[in-house]
Design a protein around this nucleic acid. Sequence first.
DNA 1: GCTAATAAGTTCACCCTAGAACAAATAAGG
DNA 2: CCTTATTTGTTCTAGGGTGAACTTATTAGC
Lengths: 398, 398
Amino acid sequence: MHRIELKSLLADRAVGTPSGRVVRALSERGALSATQIAHITGLAKSTVSMTLSELRKSGIVVEGPSLERGASVGRPATVLTLNPQAGTCVGVLIGLGQARVIVADVSHAIIADTVTELDPDFSPEQAAEETRRMIKQTYAEHSMPLCGLLGVGVAVAGPVNPIDGRMQRASVVPTWAGIDIRTVFGPVLQRPILVDNESNCAALAEMMWGAAIGYEDFVLFKIDMGVGGAIVSGGRVLTGIAGSAGEFGHMTVDPDGPLCRCGNRGCLELYASFKTPLQHASKRFDRPMTMDDVIVLAKEGDVGCRRLIEDTATAAGRGLGMIGTILNPGLIVIGGRMALAGDLLMTPLAASFEKHTLVKRSDVSGPARTELTIGKFTENDSCMGAVGLVLRHHGRLA
Amino acid sequence: MHRIELKSLLADRAVGTPSGRVVRALSERGALSATQIAHITGLAKSTVSMTLSELRKSGIVVEGPSLERGASVGRPATVLTLNPQAGTCVGVLIGLGQARVIVADVSHAIIADTVTELDPDFSPEQAAEETRRMIKQTYAEHSMPLCGLLGVGVAVAGPVNPIDGRMQRASVVPTWAGIDIRTVFGPVLQRPILVDNESNCAALAEMMWGAAIGYEDFVLFKIDMGVGGAIVSGGRVLTGIAGSAGEFGHMTVDPDGPLCRCGNRGCLELYASFKTPLQHASKRFDRPMTMDDVIVLAKEGDVGCRRLIEDTATAAGRGLGMIGTILNPGLIVIGGRMALAGDLLMTPLAASFEKHTLVKRSDVSGPARTELTIGKFTENDSCMGAVGLVLRHHGRLA
DNA sequence: GCTAATAAGTTCACCCTAGAACAAATAAGG
DNA sequence: CCTTATTTGTTCTAGGGTGAACTTATTAGC
């Protein structure tokens, strides 16, 4: 029997076949037992068994590290993953003046994580070229074959249409507006390119490996130097018709408020991000302060810094309250570096959310309540999510 | 061969079988050709052909009225529907001081539409009893067998959890809070009960028969004496963890604004509903005015009435702008009786939406734009949607 | 009015999936 | 230490869905 190629099993035409479905499930989830695969794919366990024995014979599926004993009776499950040598994926984050590249294999093992500084106003072509360089170097350093690279996921700051890869206005670098990421990166990287918004990628990371595992419906709310987020419905990250779904930072809070970089007035981002508080802190301490500085000082008991965090939380909670009213999600994950403040942020945030949202905690019983939790990822969420784009959406790969 | 029962094909256990999938598709869509069924169910057309010939033999599926010639080449499709005599469904709207009952058969033909006034503060038990009476009477008048009734869909004003049927606070009649609709109506009607919010039902109606046919993702925004709405994502009406998703009327517009009946301050409903304008109009004309009166006068050129509509539209547009920013839907359907104002409403509404939303029309090309349109249903939308609940969700029927 | 093009619907043999029965591997309990 | 309960994973056959080829029904064009 001639060798089965992983790529062909990830192609669109194999969507319906058992092999395709099993491989897809493993690619999306990482490590699974045969029973779990049967449950997820909806195939009978007999079919899964036969399919797996073939996939194991051809080396596409391997036995993974046996999971910690789950304290349950019955025969322990053998954990399976895709063969790490069968393929690799790259996640790229194109952010404010920096590019980040994470390399992982199809068994969900992270192989490398690199960050490079870029010119403040770099062009898309520069970004693509730099990405190519970083990928090439990383693969060389780990003596991995570049031909194993299945696809590249790109997370960009600002709205982007994942279908056509086109950037919207209001992106990090205004000159990127209208640029088609796929057209720019595709020819340079010579691989299928999957693009999505930074926050949407972060949500994907939380869903695949973070605080939202097992949730089909949740909201990610990101508080950092800006405010953003993502909406996950039915296990699907909502992109919106133009790719701008989840842009919580640009909800109008005060139509007569100050101008925002997006062109509207009084956006939530102007009140609930940590940009303005940082300016106040820098003035007060007479030196440039970072978000981490303020959080550390607040945890040490500095009342001024505590108040800055509280005020931000209160403003964010108002926006979050509206999101709760509109979407009534089962889970809200707080992301962004602001989440590092922990309870200092979450306590006033939860209070403000409760005040402004429609259904109060006391109105409903436990399972119908909206949970608020801190995300697992705060720093590399978007880039991990970009990896997830490839692992989840390779159906769209050529 | 013994007769196949429609009910058993609609049961959960038949979800996977071809017969079940074909019947389900027909029940959801009404009339379809064999090719369309194959496309929707994902089955091979050969399978559909064989399944249909069996279903036709057993009388569950019948040839429907041949659709108007579609001006396309090729053999014309034979249109199929479920046998109207195989089953009927009832949609009930429990609204402000009135109950409405619509009876339809499984071929999507409407058989009857009845409205009854109720006491302003009727109890759930009264509503259930009245519903039973109306259903019984209607079936008698049309000499239809009550045993053919497959299920009853109930649309209620105010948040309700469709899973457990429990009403939330902030419902029409405050005393209904915490009531389990399914438990109250179930024993009285002796049929499977499906419950959802009024607005969610309206969205279902627009999706199945109205302005949102073919859309998997859209938003319904309802402007009437209150403001409400629904979010449809991936063909699924979002209910939220507690059933309050889509409650656009209670987004906080001004945290220091007047108290709302929901207990919060400055809700959108206080500015964007037609309740306050109606009070102004009544004072101005010194007689009780209805929404229709104001719309008629506005269309005749009365500048005061025009302004009332414009101001409402402007306020609504601000809320809608936020919805556009957060969800970036491909389509927004404007429902509620306010939509009867037509362009008098839509022009300022679209302008206000455009002003407050993130992605402007000029930012993106046609297919990525958010369309704004008036709903097909304005009056009986919710009750029709309640019928749709039964036609779509009978998988959940016992 | 004939042919070509297009699309809908049907037939049938073959492969493949599902279900049941069985085998294997562990925890709990006396 | 053996039995029971529980869960995982494999084997095998029957039945059923699929795809290819074919038939039927219509429009468009010459």
